[in-house]
């Protein structure tokens, strides 16, 4: 993405040539964080959190200067099992009454390939902030005819320890290592 963006600038395709940085907004219906964990080593249940707000400030001259600031609405947490959602949202786990959002604010972007980057930042869940690294892949930049806007699509993965965020109940029967599978669209 970063090389492509530079090429775009060089060819003068941007309609706001005075600005090297583009502020793009996360599209909430196409931005999601799926979390997945091991259940007693038997299977890998998952849940999804949506309701994204926030921005990606894309620096086309120097992509490593780009920044991400995203907030997720914990009310949207869904595992497709309503009773389990109620348990997860309760004070036994995410306690969304006290902590209604989760946030990620980037502190560093390291390009790792033509379309990939490691984005480090402060991840705040359940009121606790920990360092996290997202392995991000740029999927596409294109005009979206449904929204009539040009946008970018990304996928990312990360791992975290739920104990580190004060969410360690039932460990080790239910695993501590959580996989995050992220998909995002910004316009």
């Amino acid at each position: 993405m970063f090389r492509f963006a530079t090429v775009c600038l060089a060819f003068g395709l941007m309609t706001t040539p005075a600005f090297a940085a583009d502020t793009l907004t996360f599209e909430p219906d196409h931005t999601s964080v799926v979390f997945q964990y091991p259940h007693f080593g038997m299977s890998h249940p998952s849940g999804k959190i949506m309701g994204a707000t926030g921005t990606l400030v894309l620096d086309k001259d120097d992509p490593a200067n780009s920044t991400v600031d995203i907030t997720l609405d914990m009310k949207t947490l869904t595992t497709a099992l309503p009773d389990f959602d109620t348990l997860l949202k309760s004070e036994k786990y995410f306690d969304i009454a006290q902590f209604p959002t989760a946030t990620f604010k980037s502190t560093n972007v390291e390009l790792t390939g033509e379309n990939t980057a490691n984005i480090t930042g402060d991840l705040t869940i359940h009121g606790i902030t920990q360092n996290a690294v997202l392995a991000v892949t740029f999927n596409k930049k294109a005009f979206n005819p449904a929204l009539f806007k040009t946008g970018y699509g990304f996928s990312a993965t990360a791992h975290l320890s739920r104990k580190a965020f004060g969410l360690g109940n039932l460990e080790p029967i239910v695993g501590d290592d959580i996989d995050l599978i992220i998909d995002a669209e910004v316009y």
Binding site: H30, T31, S32, V34, H39, M42, S43, P45, S46, K48, A80, L81, F84, N139, K140, A142, N144, A146, G151, Y152, G153, F154, S155, D183, A184, E185
Partner: peptide, 20 residues
């Protein structure tokens, strides 16, 4: 309660939404 079918597809080549 511990059996799920998740499907994933590509949306305009931008992202890979899922449903369960």
């Amino acid at each position: 309660g511990h059996t799920s079918v998740t499907f994933q597809y590509t949306h305009f080549g931008f992202s890979h939404p899922t449903g369960k």
